[in-house]
């Protein structure tokens, strides 16, 4: 609880903030106020993904505007803004896996790592390969584009946000926590660390599909039949049969949502027991 009371205090003081410019601001209009000093800088590298992750970010609706006003300075994100080249940033979101047969993609992921303090693999493709795991080349006009790897196979990744598409709320929560981690007081940093730890631990493994539920939860005698996995699956690959999950592996796209959403894959009492205060604080931060 100690962590949270501080978070809230900070929250009140963080209230009146000036609007900030975004990288998309056309060079011509110079009259705007400059970024709030303690915003974090964010980059967005788009590799072999479908932009659904970007849409999920945008689906914070009005909350996206608040994030940009108060906490995040968007430095590089060609889909939404004009900055064309990867910049040095505090946090990079990476969408999509890497086609190792495409020189540009390999350069971009390496450059992203070199220029970012924190790299977040956003979405099933970046974390686990997702549907690009099924790729096997042979399609014109680039038949040699055949091998795709989740970004963690090429660089060190700090945080995973699995799912396909990932959810706006998860992206929002990670963005707010990254802000606290980098700009907060000691106690806010502790809270952010506690919150992000499970997502950091997820990076230890670059593979997840329904099989993870089988091998790491059900086979381990941990499943208690809550049904969360079935709700989480974005392709209806999981049904609950006599209270236990059955995975239709012919449908599974390898997004990792079921596994990481399952309360028995990982569960942090420290954080989840404070759900009420943390949720309130995140919501207040976005007011």
């Amino acid at each position: 609880m100690g962590l949270l009371s501080i978070f809230k205090k900070k929250d009140a003081s963080a209230e009146p903030q000036k609007p900030a410019s975004v990288a998309s601001k056309p060079a011509e209009t110079k009259k705007e106020v400059k970024p709030v000093a303690d915003k974090i800088t964010l980059g967005y590298t788009h590799l072999s993904g479908c932009t659904g992750c970007t849409v999920a970010l945008a689906d914070n609706y009005a909350g996206l505007l608040t994030l940009l006003d108060k906490y995040v300075d968007l430095k590089y994100m060609p889909t939404l803004a004009d900055a064309r080249h990867i910049q040095k940033v505090d946090v990079s979101f990476v969408e999509g896996s890497v086609c190792i047969n495409d020189k540009l993609a390999v350069e971009e992921i390496k450059e992203t790592r070199e220029k970012s303090a924190i790299v977040v693999a956003l979405g099933g493709c970046a974390c686990y390969g997702n549907i690009t795991r099924f790729s096997r080349g042979g399609q014109q006009n680039q038949p040699a584009h055949e091998a795709y790897l989740p970004i963690g196979d090429l660089i060190k990744v700090d945080v995973f946000i699995p799912g396909c598409a990932p959810t706006p709320q998860m992206i929002r929560n990670v963005a707010v926590m990254a802000y606290l981690l980098l700009k907060g007081t000691k106690e806010q940093k502790d809270l952010a660390t506690a919150f992000l730890t499970p997502l950091m631990k997820l990076t230890e493994k670059n593979e997840a599909c329904f099989c993870e539920l089988m091998t790491q939860v059900i086979n381990q005698g941990l499943c208690m039949g809550c049904g969360t996995c079935a709700a989480a699956c974005p392709v209806n690959a999981i049904t609950m049969e006599y209270g236990k999950p059955q995975g239709e592996r012919d449908l599974c796209i390898k997004c990792g949502a079921c596994y990481s959403q399952c309360p028995r894959s990982w569960f942090s009492f420290d954080v989840v027991e404070n759900y009420e205060a943390i949720n309130e604080a995140i919501m207040a931060a976005l007011q």
Partner: peptide
């Protein structure tokens, strides 16, 4: 049950596959 409540709260704090649910 308690474990289902844990699932619900995890889904609220870490809504990985639970868009617009929390």
């Amino acid at each position: 049950t308690p474990c289902q409540m844990q699932a619900v709260r995890k889904a609220q704090l870490y809504p990985i596959g639970m868009r617009d649910v929390g």
